[in-house]
């Protein structure tokens, strides 16, 4: 089965690559490097990738036990429309905050372009990564004609596997609370407090590092 999965993945990657409009971004399809992980998270104006936009984006690289926060990226992105009240309540980035940091704001294309360089050859790690990837894809698909080809690791999935192993009942599917807070609590990791893209990326990275350690020891 594994070879089939691999084959399909390769095929998709290939089809994806044929769509690339700008040859300067050929590097996006560079070979994946062993042991190179990037954790990323974005805050958005809403939960619909088709309509909503990225407000801030953070990513940190993980090297073994070390989370390289010093070399991470943190972008704030300019917005064409005012950010809605509901989403401000979630990420606490106000329209005013964007105005105040005008100088540091990046255009959407610039931010995503730098992001693509940053994650070159890396495996992406995230919590409900699908959504974040979809948000990025919604930018690059119309622009570059491709979707993010990087392999992905979903930490909630890793966590579920770990918890599921605690039950040795074969087909029994345990109910595991996969909320971010619950995972942090169960793994006894510190909650750095306020949700923002950087914090979430950092904490997701910690979850990933710890889960991987636990996997190693349980093997």
């Amino acid at each position: 089965m594994n070879w089939l999965k691999k084959k399909i993945a390769q095929h998709r990657r290939e089809r994806n690559r044929r769509g690339l409009k700008d040859s300067a971004y050929q590097f996006v399809f560079n070979e994946t490097l062993e042991g190179d992980y990037v954790c990323f998270d974005c805050e958005t104006t809403g939960l619909n990738p088709a309509r909503d936009r990225i407000v801030s984006l953070s990513a940190v690289r993980i090297s073994g036990d070390r989370i390289l926060t010093s070399q991470g990226i943190n972008f704030l992105i300019e917005q064409a429309d005012a950010i809605s009240e509901e989403s401000i309540k979630v990420h606490q980035i106000r329209n005013q905050d964007l105005q105040q940091q005008q100088a540091q704001l990046l255009s959407e294309e610039e931010a995503i372009s730098r992001f693509l360089h940053f994650i070159r050859g890396a495996t992406l790690v995230g919590y409900y990564l699908e959504f974040d990837v979809a948000m990025v894809n919604s930018v690059i698909k119309p622009w570059l004609g491709v979707e993010l080809p990087n392999p992905r690791i979903e930490v909630s999935e890793l966590y579920y596997e770990l918890r599921a192993k605690e039950h040795l009942y074969g087909v029994y599917q345990p109910a595991v609370d996969l909320s971010f807070e619950e995972i942090l609590k169960h793994l006894q990791l510190p909650n750095f407090g306020q949700h923002n893209a950087f914090n979430d990326a950092l904490m997701t990275a910690l979850i990933f590092v710890k889960l991987r350690k636990l996997q190693q020891t349980s093997l």
Binding site: D65, R66, I67, L68, T69, S70, L202, A205, L206, V209, K210, K213, T217
Partner: peptide, 10 residues
């Protein structure tokens, strides 16, 4: 603070 990296040890 900019130069911080985070380390994890079991």
């Amino acid at each position: 603070a900019q130069t911080f990296d985070v380390l994890y040890y079991p």
